[in-house]
């Protein structure tokens, strides 16, 4: 195949597979945020990419700060927390000012959040300049493992992946084990009835939206390990993450995880054998074909309604 030996192809799969981990982490976190906002609340947030960029800029700024005060080796976990907090706060505000007035009007929400994304991009441009900036990665994140002489596994990918797994587990615990998760799920299943058993559904909406934005902010922190951050970098990822959510089945968190993994790995491995855009096209075509066979996504929920 393509003039490579079987062993070489094996190595390529492992290496591209691991380098796909960072992309997987970014996509998964973004898609988790989207899955919560779109899958659970039915809001299409076109400014989702910009929330990711909030997290990315937060990380970049914190890294500059870390360089200055000499704690580059430790700042990254803090950056993820700051990214989460900042995106959460902005999300909370946006829900309060904008989204909550538009819940029953999906088309207006689409337009309003698209407008919001433009506004946010302009704010980024004014605040940080049009040029792309990069985070100073700690030394220990730059190297790679070499389990065999032919295989390189980047440490940053594994690290970011680990943190992503933690956050994903946290989201699961939140949704399925906490009182807040119970409120969110009740509101999603029957808003009127959730109110009539005593749940303050408006507050639930605000927290849910903010949480989705916060997780996306963390995606931004992860993003700084694979790319440089500019005012419009977020828009490159919005399509991919919508794809992940739709492909996985909008209401299923498990589906979101598997489909993020599938899409990130397919893109990353295919990119080795063809150009990056051909890789994307192939992935997209495959998704379209699968969605034609399973329109509800990979993991449709199995409860009778």
């Amino acid at each position: 195949m393509f003039g490579y030996s079987m062993a070489e192809i094996g190595n390529v799969f492992v290496m591209q597979g691991f380098s796909g981990l960072s992309l997987f982490s970014v996509l998964l976190l973004m898609a988790l945020g989207l899955a919560i906002i779109f899958g659970q609340m039915g809001v299409i947030n076109m400014a989702h990419g910009e929330f990711m960029i909030i997290g990315a800029y937060a990380t970049v700024m914190l890294s500059k700060f870390a360089v200055k005060y000499d704690f580059v080796n430790y700042y990254f976990p803090f950056a993820m927390i700051v990214a989460f907090g900042l995106a959460f706060a902005v999300g909370y505000l946006v829900e309060f000012v904008l989204i909550r007035h538009l819940y029953k009007r999906p088309l207006d929400t689409l337009l309003a959040t698209w407008g919001l994304s433009l506004v946010m991009q302009q704010i980024f441009r004014s605040a940080f300049g049009a040029k792309e900036v990069s985070a100073e990665l700690p030394e220990w994140m730059l190297g790679s493992f070499k389990p065999t002489p032919d295989i390189d596994i980047p440490i940053n990918g594994v690290f970011v992946m680990g943190l992503t797994a933690l956050i994903t587990a946290g989201v699961f615990l939140f949704m399925f084990r906490s009182r807040w998760g119970l409120r969110v799920r009740a509101t999603v299943q029957n808003r009127v009835m959730a109110g009539a058993v005593g749940i303050n559904t408006k507050k639930v909406d605000r927290i849910t939206f903010a949480l989705g934005c916060g997780i996306t902010g963390v995606a931004g922190a992860a993003f700084t390990t694979i790319g440089s951050t500019g005012p419009t970098s977020g828009s490159l990822y919005i399509v991919d993450s919508f794809m992940v959510v739709v492909f996985g089945g909008a209401a299923s968190l498990l589906g979101t995880i598997s489909s993020a993994f599938g899409i990130a790995q397919a893109q990353s491995i295919l990119q080795f054998f063809m150009t990056s855009s051909m890789g994307k096209v192939t992935t997209l075509l495959t998704i379209v074909i699968i969605l034609m066979m399973r329109p509800e996504g990979l993991f449709a929920s199995k409860i009778r309604k």
């Binding site: 119970l182 409120r183 799920r185 009740a186 299943q189 029957n190 009127v192 009835m193 959730a194 109110g195 009539a196 058993v197 005593g198 749940i199 303050n200 559904t201 929920s301 409860i303 009778r304 309604k305």
Partner: peptide
């Protein structure tokens, strides 16, 4: 609604309207 519940009204609607995708226990916990 949620304020009325806090003041002491509870409602069993026509057609039940339980939360179908939640367990019995979770339904009561809401």
């Amino acid at each position: 609604s949620h304020q009325r519940v806090a003041k002491g009204i509870a409602y069993v609607p026509q057609g039940r309207m339980i939360f179908p995708a939640m367990t019995v226990e979770e339904n009561i916990e809401t």
